[in-house]
Design a protein around this nucleic acid. Structure first.
Lengths: 235, 235
DNA sequence: CGGGCATTATTTGTACTACATAATATTACA
DNA sequence: TGTAATATTATGTAGTACAAATAATGCCCG
């Protein structure tokens, strides 16, 4: 489910390495990085590759370079918190319940609103995709199959909103939550427990009932969230 | 209100130029860019500067480079739609009512939820900041003053949610809406017309009444949205 | 002795060259 | 004709040289 983000470029590796160090707090905001020449030498790459990486991190708002002053880590308020990489680094370094809560909160805001919008604007074709995903969920025989279909269901709903900003936001939140979502699927025996919830959402979207869809989706994600919370508490 | 995003670096200029061309659709997804050497020559910059820019655009998901194949513009589904630059380029090139609607929809989803969260979790200090912003709005004597205080109000509410993802999302949406928000402030004579709305939100947050705050904020942004829509229709 | 101004030193910014690597296109050979 | 070796060509990486900006220094003069 979680794609390993394979990087073939050298500068990409440097981006990952430095990005992780910064987001994890190992290099705190305000401190200066070693100058390019030294840092390049230390990381065993050319200054060229290092600089290409720095431009990327700079674009994400993590660092700021000025002549003579050097390159320093910017305060967290300037970071592109919704950037896929930044989010991934946070998840990798700070898997605190606190942060998962924040992600789940975002999801709980977005998804009900998306369901309502989908009920209002969905086309016949888009409804078809949601139905297909639902059928796949109903027909699944193990957790793996179910997870894939579940994801397809939510994606189909998002697409039916006709708002690419919402789609983008969800996909970012979703990948960040990633493995944690697996926690919301209870024990292996009743992995289909939330199927009725999905049915209600589907029906509401089919009948073009925005408020019903919103409410049904809200129940669903709130339920999923409390499950995650329960699991988190145990660990 | 809208900051002009001044870029001192050469590669930054190239990023802006190419980014705008791509997002506006003048360079369509799927087509290959000229090879680095030619493009650098055409843009009157060194290949170094061009490449640093390409890495940034690549990080935003706009382009994809592979050896021998060349560099091609990726499909829109891969773009970081929530990236501040990408959003700014879209606003600059495609100021269609359609897109403004999508931004406004996002705002209408986020802000009420934020108000509710703020009512639940605000500290005394954060309440103080919201109150201060409200006082500044009440005391304002022209539209300019009012706009600044208004923005401060919404930011203060967002900060009281204790969720930096929400703060980040709002700030991106907000800057993108930018000038359009000015449209929601009616004619110069009654620029304070929404002050009572703000009062209700403030009171609800003070009294820690999430649902009341949500409802009040919802009324406010829905109102603002319909104003924007009305103006858009006229133009 | 202290303040303002010119100088210097240092760090990033830009340019250019050279070569490595990967992926495609071509050609030679079976 | 099919396959494998080879050539071609684009990006990837390295390294050098110099430009530009600015913090830090030190000098001069009041």
């Amino acid at each position: 489910m979680v794609k390993p983000v394979v990087v073939r470029n050298l500068h990409g590796q440097v981006v990952q390495e430095l990005g992780r160090l910064i987001v994890s707090g190992e290099i705190a905001p305000g401190v200066n990085l070693p100058r390019e020449e030294l840092l390049a030498e230390h990381m065993k790459v050319s200054r060229t590759a290092l600089r290409e990486a720095m431009k990327v991190l700079s674009a994400k708002g993590l660092i700021e370079s000025r002549q003579k002053t050097g390159t320093r880590v910017r305060d967290t308020v300037h970071w592109s918190q919704l950037d896929a990489d930044v989010l991934a680094w946070r998840c990798a370094s700070m898997p605190t319940d606190d942060f998962v809560e924040k992600l789940a909160e975002m999801r709980e805001i977005i998804e009900p609103a998306a369901a309502a919008a989908a009920a209002r604007r969905r086309t016949a074709d888009q409804l078809g995709r949601i139905e297909a995903a639902y059928e796949a969920m109903a027909a699944s025989t193990d957790r793996e199959e179910w997870s894939v279909a579940d994801l397809a269901f939510h994606e189909a709903v998002l697409h039916a909103t006709h708002n690419e900003l919402m789609i983008s936001l969800f996909s970012v939140i979703e990948t960040a939550l990633g493995s944690y979502l697996a926690l919301s699927a209870r024990k292996a025996s009743d992995f289909k427990y939330s199927l009725p919830h999905h049915k209600k959402v589907l029906d509401a979207i089919r009948r073009r009932q925005p408020e019903v869809a919103r409410e049904a989706m809200h129940k669903m994600v709130a339920d999923s969230r409390s499950n995650i919370r329960r699991h988190a508490k145990k660990a």
